[in-house]
Simulated assay, not measured.
Amino acid sequence: MIKVSVLYPKTADSTFDIAYYRETHMALVREKLGDACKGTAIESGLAGGAPGEPPVYIAMGHLFFDSVSDFETAFGPHANEILGDIPNFTNVQPAVQISEIIQ
């Protein structure tokens, strides 16, 4: 199993509409990726590691797939639509990491 993490960095002027992300964007992602996407998770950053420190990421979205090729096959045809929705909920450019889940 792999996890695709979309990480939205927290900056001094970053904005993020978590309600839109949860209710609209992730619903769009799940619809477009279909059964290839085995699950999703959303995190909203609260704080950094030290007291009073801001979070490194304002939000994170995670998508789970059986393999990288399953992700690529599902995402590719819908990439423009999914990525085109980003300005509707944030003004930051996300970073993406694909990781293998090891248990």
Rank of each mutant, 00 (worst) to 15 (best):
P54E: 07
E81D: 14
I42L: 10
G76T: 04
G39P: 02
C37M: 15
L83M: 13
E72F: 03
H78Q: 07
A50G: 14
S69W: 00
I58A: 05
E23Y: 12
P54Y: 09
T40Q: 06
A47H: 11
E23D: 15
G48T: 00
D85P: 06
P55T: 00
D66G: 10
E31L: 00
I18R: 14
L33N: 08
E23W: 12
G48R: 01
T40K: 06
A36V: 01
F71Q: 10
H25K: 01
S44Q: 07
L46N: 05
G49N: 14
R30N: 10
A19S: 15
R22T: 12
G39C: 06
G52L: 00
F89C: 14
F71P: 05
G49L: 09
L63W: 03
E72T: 03
G84Q: 12
D66T: 09
M26W: 07
F89S: 15
A74H: 00
L63G: 05
A36F: 00
K32Y: 11
M60K: 10
T90C: 02
G39L: 10
I42M: 09
D66M: 00
L46M: 08
G84C: 13
G61T: 11
D17W: 04
V56P: 02
N80G: 15
P54L: 03
N88V: 11
T73R: 12
T40V: 12
P87D: 15
T24A: 09
T24W: 04
F71H: 14
P51E: 11
T24M: 09
D70Y: 02
G45C: 01
P51S: 05
I86N: 00
L28T: 01
I18E: 15
S69R: 09
Y21H: 07
Y20D: 11
F65P: 05
F71W: 13
Y21L: 01
H78P: 01
F64S: 08
P77D: 01
G52P: 01
K32S: 10
D70C: 05
L28F: 02
I42D: 06
E72S: 10
I58G: 00
V68Q: 01
G84W: 11
N88I: 10
L63K: 04
I42H: 06
Y57K: 03
K38W: 08
D35P: 07
I18P: 04
I82S: 00
N80K: 13
V56H: 13
A19H: 12
H62L: 12
Y21T: 05
T73Q: 11
D17N: 13
D66V: 02
D66E: 13
S67P: 06
E81R: 10
K32H: 09
C37D: 08
A47M: 05
R22D: 13
I58T: 04
G52C: 05
G39V: 08
Y57H: 11
N80S: 14
G45T: 03
